[in-house]
Design a protein around this nucleic acid. Structure first.
Lengths: 340, 340
DNA sequence: TTGTACGCGTTATCAT
DNA sequence: ATGATAACGCGTACAA
C-alpha cells in the first residue's frame, strides 16, 4: 500500500519479496521458469509496492520501443480520424502503442513532431505529409526509421505508401453526374497544389471529355483550403454565375467543402439536388448525415490505415522488406444530393 | 552520410569527433561550456553520423519523460479533437510531446491505454473517462501519475478536473426554447448513465418548471448513444407522436444527436424550425455548418483542454499543488434551427 | 530454480 | 575547457 510515487523498481520488489532481482525479472518475462510459490510471493510484492514496469528502461535495453506513430494532416477532419482508427486496430493487434500527432497542415509542426518521434525511437512512422516531396521525409528514412506515406504518393519508390486512386475517384464522380444528365458541372476545391485535388480533378476532366462534352462547360472553382468555410465561399461564387450559364452540379474535392456548399445552397434557397446536385469525396459520416444526404466517393479509410500499419511493421521487422505502393479503389455512393 | 540505421550514440559521435563523451554531452546540454571550435567539430560529426538523441535513455536518466497524454472518449467526435487541440497548444508551450489515445468509450481499451501510459512514465494523464468513478483512475493517481479528468467531474476531490456547467447549459437551452414560445419540448439523448446527459436534462427540467410549465409537456426521448444514428432513430419516434401532442422543439444532448434529428426531419419533410425547432450541444463546427445551422450550447473546448493541461503540469511540477475543480460556463449560440 | 554481473545511451559530478 | 565515471531500471547471459 506504500505510495511510492511510481518509483518502485524490480530491485525494490526483489527486496520486498526476499528474492533476487533476476527472479523478479523472470516472473515478468518467463513466468514458467519460476516456482509457483515464489512467483506468487513476487506478485504480491509487486501489487503492494504498486510496481509498474519502466518502458524507458525496457526500450533502452531492447534497443527499440513498442510504439508506432501516425502524424495526421488534420485531426479535425473525420477522414483522418477514421484512418487513425484503422491504424490503431493494427497496432493493437501487434501489441504496440500508437502515438497520434496532428500537424494541422503546418510543415513546421510536422517537423517538430517528426523530430520528437525520431528521438522516441518509435518503431515506425505513418504520415500524411504536408508535402510528400519534402526532404525531411528522406532524412528520416535515411537515418533508419521505417516511414510509410498515407493517402499520398510520392514520385519514385523510396517509401512504402498507401493511397486511393484519386484519378479514378474523380472519374466516377463526374461520370455519375453526366449519367444523371448534367451538362454544366463545377469542380470545387483547392488548393491545386494538393496532389489529391489535382488528381481528382484530372479524373473529372477525363470523364468529361470522354463523354464528348465541351471543356468550357466544366467550370473550375478553386478554393484555398478543403474546409466547410471554403465550400461556403465557393457557393457564393457559384451563385454569382448567371443562371443560364450556372452549373447544375458540383463535384467537390472533399466532403467538408461539399457540406459548406450544401449549406450555402440551402440557406440561400437553392434546391439540392433539383437546382444544384452535389458530389463530395471521402464519404465521412457527416456526409451521409447531412440534411440532404451527400453523394460521395468513398475511400476505404480504415483499410487504408490498416494497410499502412502492416507495411510499416513489415519494414520494421522483415529484413527482406521491399517498398510497396498500395493503391485502393474508391467507390461512388449515390445519395439524395444527386437524385434529381 | 553513413546510414547508421538510427544507431549512432554520443559515444560514436565522440569517437568520430575525437573528443570525449562528456564533451559531446556538453555540446548538447551546455553549449556555452565548450569552445567554439570543438563545438563545431562535434556538430559536424553529429550531422555526418545522423545522430539522434535517444529519448528512452534521456528519460531513464532524468527519471521522467517529456510527454503528456490525453485519453479521448471518442476521437470521431469533433468536440474531443478540439479539446485535444487545446491540450496540444499547452503541451507545445511546455515543450512536451502529446500522446493521443482513443478509448472509443470502451473501458477495456481505456484500461489498456492507461497501463501503457503508466509504463511510459508520462508526466501526466488527461482523460475523459468512460466512467469517472472507476477505481482504475484511483489506482493510477495512487501510484503517482498526475491525472486530470476532462469534461467530467467526480465526487470527492481526489483529482483535478475541468468541466463545463452542464446543468446551466441545459437550462440555457430550454429557456431559449421557452422564450421562443415553445410549450411542448422533447429532450433527446442518452444513455442517462452518462453524467453530462443527466446534468443537461436536469438543467432543462429546472428551466421548464421554473417557467411554470407542466412537466408532462417535457417529453424524454432516451437514446442509447450520442451519435448521429441515435438522433435519426429518435426522429422516427418523434414523428410517431400524433401531431397534436408532438413537441414543437427538441433539445438534444449533443450536436451529433441533433444532426441526426435534423437529417430525419429534413428527409421526412418536417420543416426546421417551423415545425420542429432544434437545439444541440457542444457547438462543434458541423453544427454551424449544417444545412439548417444549428442553435447549440457552446462549450469552450480549446480552453477546456488548455486548463486541463495547466492543471496536470502544476500537479507534476509544483510540490504544493492542490487539486482543483475548474468549471467553465457554457453559452447559447442561437442560429436558424430555432429561429421561427 | 535462483542469483550475479554487465550493458543499453544519456547526463551530471568531479577531477584534471 | 575537457575528460573520466557512476547512475538511472531493466533484461539476459552465465554461474551457482
Amino acid at each position: 500500500m506504500a505510495q511510492q510515487s511510481l518509483t518502485a523498481s524490480v530491485k525494490d520488489v526483489a527486496a520486498a519479496a526476499g528474492v533476487s532481482l533476476g527472479t523478479v525479472s523472470n516472473v515478468l518475462n518467463r513466468p514458467d521458469r519460476v516456482a509457483a510459490a515464489t512467483r506468487e510471493k513476487v506478485e504480491r510484492a509487486m501489487a503492494e509496492l504498486g510496481f509498474v514496469r519502466n518502458e524507458s528502461a525496457r526500450s533502452l535495453r531492447a534497443g527499440r520501443t513498442r510504439t508506432l506513430a501516425y502524424v495526421m494532416l488534420d485531426a479535425g477532419n473525420p477522414f483522418f480520424t477514421d484512418v487513425a482508427q484503422g491504424i490503431e486496430h493494427a497496432a493493437e493487434g501487434a501489441e504496440l502503442s500508437l502515438f497520434l500527432c496532428n500537424s494541422d497542415a503546418r510543415a513546421s509542426r510536422e517537423a517538430t513532431h517528426l523530430g520528437h518521434l525520431e528521438q522516441q525511437r518509435v518503431q515506425g512512422i505513418l504520415i500524411t505529409p504536408v508535402d510528400p516531396e519534402s526532404p525531411v521525409l528522406d532524412a528520416i528514412a535515411h537515418r533508419g526509421t521505417p516511414l510509410v506515406i498515407v493517402d499520398r504518393t510520392r514520385r519514385g519508390a523510396q517509401f512504402c505508401s498507401v493511397a486511393v486512386d484519386d484519378v479514378l475517384g474523380g472519374r466516377l464522380a463526374v461520370e455519375h453526374l453526366v449519367d444523371r444528365g448534367h451538362r454544366r458541372v463545377a469542380l470545387v476545391g483547392g488548393p491545386l497544389s494538393i496532389g489529391q485535388v489535382a488528381d481528382r480533378f484530372e479524373g473529372a476532366r477525363t470523364a468529361w471529355t470522354s463523354a464528348g462534352l465541351p471543356p468550357d462547360d466544366l467550370t473550375l472553382l478553386v478554393a484555398d483550403s478543403l474546409t466547410v468555410a471554403a465550400g461556403r465561399s465557393a457557393g457564393e461564387r457559384l451563385a454569382g454565375i448567371p443562371s443560364g450559364r450556372r452549373p447544375t452540379a458540383a463535384f467537390c474535392a472533399n466532403d467538408l467543402v461539399a457540406l459548406g456548399l450544401l449549406q450555402h445552397a440551402t440557406t440561400t434557397g437553392l434546391q439540392v439536388p433539383e437546382q444544384l446536385a452535389i458530389v463530395g469525396y471521402d464519404d465521412i459520416e457527416f456526409a451521409a448525415a447531412a440534411a440532404v444526404p451527400l453523394t460521395s466517393v468513398r475511400q476505404p479509410r480504415q483499410e487504408l490505415g490498416r494497410a499502412a500499419a502492416d507495411l510499416v511493421l513489415d519494414e520494421a521487422g522483415n529484413p527482406q522488406h521491399e517498398h510497396r505502393q498500395v493503391v485502393f479503389t474508391p467507390e461512388l455512393v449515390a445519395r439524395a444530393s444527386t437524385r434529381g
